[in-house]
Design a protein around this nucleic acid. Sequence first.
DNA 1: TCAAAAGTGTTATCCTTACACCCATGT
DNA 2: ACATGGGTGTAAGGATAACACTTTTGA
Lengths: 324, 324
Amino acid sequence: MAETVLTPIEIGLTAAIVAVEDGEPAILVAGDGGKSEPRAGLPFGPFDPLAHRTFEIGLREWVEAQTGLNVGYVEQLYTFGDRGRHAGPADVAHMVSVGYLALTRMESAAALKTGGAGFEPWYRFFPWEDWRKKRPAILDDAIIPSLSEWTAPPHGEIGRALGWRERLRLCFGVGGSPWDEEKVLDRYEMLYEAGLIEEARRDGRAAALARDRLPALGEPMRFDHRRILATAIARLRAKLKYRPVVFELMPAEFTLTELQHTVEAISGRLLHKQNFRRLVEGTALVEPTGETSTATGGRPAALFRFRREVLSERPAPGLRLGGR
Amino acid sequence: MAETVLTPIEIGLTAAIVAVEDGEPAILVAGDGGKSEPRAGLPFGPFDPLAHRTFEIGLREWVEAQTGLNVGYVEQLYTFGDRGRHAGPADVAHMVSVGYLALTRMESAAALKTGGAGFEPWYRFFPWEDWRKKRPAILDDAIIPSLSEWTAPPHGEIGRALGWRERLRLCFGVGGSPWDEEKVLDRYEMLYEAGLIEEARRDGRAAALARDRLPALGEPMRFDHRRILATAIARLRAKLKYRPVVFELMPAEFTLTELQHTVEAISGRLLHKQNFRRLVEGTALVEPTGETSTATGGRPAALFRFRREVLSERPAPGLRLGGR
DNA sequence: TCAAAAGTGTTATCCTTACACCCATGT
DNA sequence: ACATGGGTGTAAGGATAACACTTTTGA
């Protein structure tokens, strides 16, 4: 047990770099190599333990080198080891990917080197996650019918702690269960396991039903990058509520409505305006600059800035939302 | 950017396997090789991508092989890449450790193969984390004085987003800040960075102050295993509050007081009895078996069992605690 | 009969949610 | 004047925290 021989493996760092502009959350996608099939993919780089002491240092370095982007907030998401889901050539062999979430401001993102990389609205990859205008049509038109068919026996109630039907209820809010905007990864995984999305077919997981009639469920990505993005969105939606991370995505000064739109963009649902304002001001997360912005149309809005002091004041502030 | 050469690295899976008996939380420590200096260490094993499709499958397998233990709940914690903290021989080279949290019941833990492994109370490694009887004396006797000395200039306010003094306040509840039982990892990291614990000295990080007069701050562990244990405790303390994970540590039937003692053991602080009972019964997480237990001393207590159905009923139940 | 632990009832307080209304600007 | 978005007051409902009290056993 003490000294064991370990299999050599390669480690890649994959970054989900998020920014929000005009109320649209966007993800940095790496340049298309040209021939690779799913056009979109997340930027990734190797981890070289000789050059960098920690993952995070390495990540910051190659992100800056590749894109010129200086990311602020960085957080490790998850480490994915299942090889079955990489459909790369056999000689690339064993690859483990450590997923990271990074937040940046559009201001600094403007200075992006155009090495083929650019920001894309993230709901292109997850159209069923955007409930801001209305309940996404793709849910009732395609996803829920297909999954219902799939969850019927023989896949029905076997092989899992939770039956498939229960998972369908919990993940997609079927049959009275509420929609939980944080279950982004669970929903993606279920679609993958059911073989309903491009990546699953590519990995040799054919849907047992007439998928040909099925429209594409969101834009696919290379490797397991869409899974990492799902993890990033889920983590960000959850973290919003107990840590002041939104401000990493905001400019130095902003109106409360802009702040609300940013939160709504990330969480994918609309919030109750009055309560949001009260909440934000009540938590002392922001302070007025004294100036106003007339850019909005109606009455000029007061400008606010994030009170950096809160990071050292109270233990763990955030924006616990609450519907409508 | 498309095809990059990656450095080969070895990947080890390290498991923090937790059980609770008689109100003492315990961690499975691997057998002492005999000569290695810190006697205690977590069980770990290699990840062999040829043999196992996912990390979790591999982990379950070698845990069972090494200890005969059949762990139930398993969750990935964090992946540590900083080599600077492994003081192994140079030729072992680049090792990345993926930390896992696993929960098991003492019942099944009894069937443990005695391959040198055994359960140890986890507060032996973190004596400052147990506030159940009283505020731990080691805080005022050793930790806070030493850290205060350390946080004074020249280390004072430089080199960090948060000054050292702010971190001291937030992590250790100095100067009016409340003690947050979830900040287990933050506290450990701060002690490490200040060079006050064994592992730091071993990694070549000497304390700039008279550490000789300092008592050992908890029992050390091999490699970065104590850091992984800190991560595990922190995660478990947090997760208790929003997912019904305690029940993974309980026998099939239990009294509400036993349940409360288990929660207290993990979170390291005492709870308000009446409210705890009301809370638990109110959330419908448990149901009475109809029988009673006279084992406790006073009036016989009603026995309860976990209602497994809740996993599929409501979205995310847990035991939001609340002091005293 | 007394100690020890189980179990119940009630109240004060705060936070969340929701509704209704007023204010300042551009066209 | 009126449309548009900014901003405030207040009340109902539910969850939490705290208190005091009763019940059932073993020694």
